[in-house]
């Protein structure tokens, strides 16, 4: 971000970034175009996502609500956006089954986006009357104020299924342990690596990092969305290749300047 003394048109410090960015985008967009043209990739099974329907169905059978938490961050966070996309799929299923879906949120912008998405899902499922805007409601921006509400609400409403999809911090375990205490089936997804162990320990299924971002594409089942997943894989393969190349070069470099060094058996702890 440093301005060069000569305000040239293209910042030369950022050339590498430009190359990597263009390459990544190219992989993703090309795979999407290919998928649209009919070359749809086969995506491996992701356990947590296959359980979505089962969880909603169970809540319906038991006559208990479904709780969906799209994280506690605002819409500027890609995880929240991914969470809202998953919400639209869950809402679609819930509308079909006519199950109760509660979406307490901690940011008012998220409330707006979540309402749009739930309403559209209800429309698409042919159940426009099922949507109740008051079920998607703002609680408070304060992390633990929100957690206090969620913990209390779980103890009282006893949801049968809980979804935690978005960006979570310390409240992750408050949510997951209280959900576990009321016997809910729990599916979590986040890219906040520090919280993953808690979801792994307390939830039935956890979407880890990139899996969570892939969830929306996977659930949509649309060819072009699935195509972007293959694009990610191609980019990953490229990164791995470059990485291996870099490691080989680094290793060769170690030997080139002083190749007369004899390896010894000393243990250096």
């Amino acid at each position: 971000m440093v301005l060069g003394a000569d305000a040239s048109f293209l910042n030369p410090d950022k050339l590498l970034l430009l190359v990597v960015l263009v390459a990544t985008c190219a992989c993703i967009i090309a795979s999407m175009v290919l998928a649209r043209a009919g070359r749809v990739p086969k995506i491996r099974r992701i356990a947590g996502l296959e359980a979505v329907e089962e969880a909603v169905g169970r809540a319906t059978e038991m006559g208990r609500p479904i709780l969906f938490v799209p994280g506690i961050q605002d819409m500027d966070n890609p995880m929240t956006v991914a969470g809202i996309t998953v919400l639209s799929r869950v809402a679609g299923t819930a509308a079909q089954y006519d199950a109760t879906l509660d979406v307490p949120v901690s940011r008012s912008l998220v409330m707006q986006a979540a309402r749009e998405s739930v309403q559209a899902a209800a429309l698409q499922a042919g159940q426009p009357d099922w949507f109740d805007p008051e079920r998607v409601r703002y609680i408070t921006d304060e992390q633990f104020g929100y957690a206090a509400y969620a913990a209390g609400a779980m103890a009282r409403d006893k949801p049968a299924a809980c979804f935690y999809m978005g960006c979570f911090f310390a409240e992750s375990l408050i949510l997951a342990e209280n959900g576990n205490a009321v016997g809910a089936i729990q599916i979590a997804g986040t890219a906040e690596t520090a919280q993953l162990p808690f979801f792994v320990a307390s939830c039935d299924y956890t979407l880890i990092g990139e899996e969570f971002f892939a969830a929306s594409a996977y659930l949509s089942g649309a060819p072009d969305q699935l195509g972007t997943l293959r694009g990610q894989d191609i980019a990953k393969a490229l990164i791995a290749l470059v990485l291996v190349g870099g490691v080989v070069m680094a290793t060769v470099k170690v030997f080139t300047p002083k190749s007369d060094r004899a390896p010894t058996a000393e243990m250096a702890p």
């Binding site: 890609p78 890219a191 990092g209 971002f213 892939a214 929306s216 997943l229």
Partner: peptide
């Protein structure tokens, strides 16, 4: 590896958006 994966996920999500 998780971080690299997430970065790719963010890039793909960004493009989709």
């Amino acid at each position: 590896a998780i971080i690299i994966g997430i970065a790719l996920g963010v890039a793909a999500t960004g493009i989709r958006l």
